[in-house]
Design a protein around this nucleic acid. Structure first.
Lengths: 196, 196
DNA sequence: CGTCGCATTGATATCGCTCAAATCCGGTGG
DNA sequence: CCACCGGATTTGAGCGATATCAATGCGACG
């Protein structure tokens, strides 16, 4: 099971909380006291439409911060619940805000943390805008791959990867097989290599 | 033509530059001297694969910052070119970094700017992960709509909206018609209303 | 050893893409 | 004022890629 430590940056401000499946991290309308870091599991941020339909705004994955907006907002604008048994680190917004204002070097690091996420997310949006499964896979390899030829190591299972690519797992399996048959990618011990 | 002013926050650090279609904003590997704000037009951030295939990492839209990462990076990791005649405001990274470190209130505002983008982008990723066109439209209305019932006003044309939703314009037109026929949405003077 | 989840492959249905054409609209120039 | 043009909007027909449903093998784990 992947277990991500809260970045050293703010480890001293964080306190961990364990949540069962379905557990609530925070609720819409309550005071925004904490920013969170997901150590493991899966947390959904969602809202409800007028008719009661659930709308997922963000599915946080292990190793990510979420609800950073509570730094700048009085109350939460959505509800967060655990879709799986999860462990979250809660960081007091006030303390974090305080430190950003008091420690310039820390402020830069926090900006960097957020900016990096932004960049990755933009690449992901671009990837999801591609129409074909093969294009999405190749975009992933070329933007997230390391070394030459670009090699990508899925963080979790291929099923998870499929979800991240906006595909069903069946579609991803088939696409990988097809690309491999065409000699455009290769798979070795869990990694995916991009060839010409 | 939409013309976005550079946020007052940093207007005094910015200097505008006009670009023809195809003009280069910055190139891969050159020194990361500026962060940019796109006033109007369209700028593509892209990289090239081993075989020379272009990979678009981000398509910046009017009113957005781009290349914020140059605050934390020595060199640009991609190339940016104008896909249309565009106007960009260039903000010196060094000056911006300087101000973040010297002015705590400014630092908080910059963090807020970036965090807000992050939140919107996450919602967009979630939206693009939905399989059906109707679901994407309703997600858009419920997450980006204002008032009750939620009303959404497209920034540009429906064609542009279709691209943002990862659909062809034909698919979007048909989906809107179908939803309207089913009484789930209504369209009045350019706005789209979500009903039940 | 049974169960559970992941990986994989097959068959079929469906939704959205592609190509095509008609209309509308604002702007432009004669 | 009108003819013309380009781009947006809208609707149609057909096809293909991906979702969906289904089944199997496999490894981990209790």
């Amino acid at each position: 099971m992947p277990e991500a430590d809260c970045p050293a940056l703010i480890a001293d401000l964080a306190s961990s909380r364990e949540l069962p499946r379905g557990g609530t991290v925070f609720r819409l309308g309550t005071r925004a006291r904490h920013v969170y870091f997901l150590q493991h599991g899966r947390v959904l941020l969602h809202r409800f439409g007028p008719g009661g339909e659930e709308v997922v705004i963000h599915a946080a994955a292990a190793g990510e911060f979420f609800a950073e907006a509570s730094l700048h907002s009085e109350r939460y604008h959505c509800t967060a619940t655990a879709a799986q048994p999860s462990r979250v680190a809660a960081i007091e917004s006030a303390a974090l805000r305080q430190r950003i204002q008091a420690d310039p070097a820390f402020a830069m690091q926090w900006v960097e943390t957020v900016s990096r996420q932004l960049r990755r997310l933009r690449a992901r949006v671009e990837r999801l805008s591609l129409r074909s499964a093969a294009e999405r896979v190749q975009h992933l390899l070329l933007t997230e791959g390391q070394g030459t030829p670009p090699a990508y190591t899925p963080g979790g299972t291929l099923r998870n990867l499929a979800a991240e690519l906006g595909l069903t797992h069946e579609a991803l399996y088939r696409t990988l097989s097809a690309l491999e048959r065409q000699g455009r990618i290769a798979r070795r011990d869990g990694r995916i290599l991009h060839l010409g």
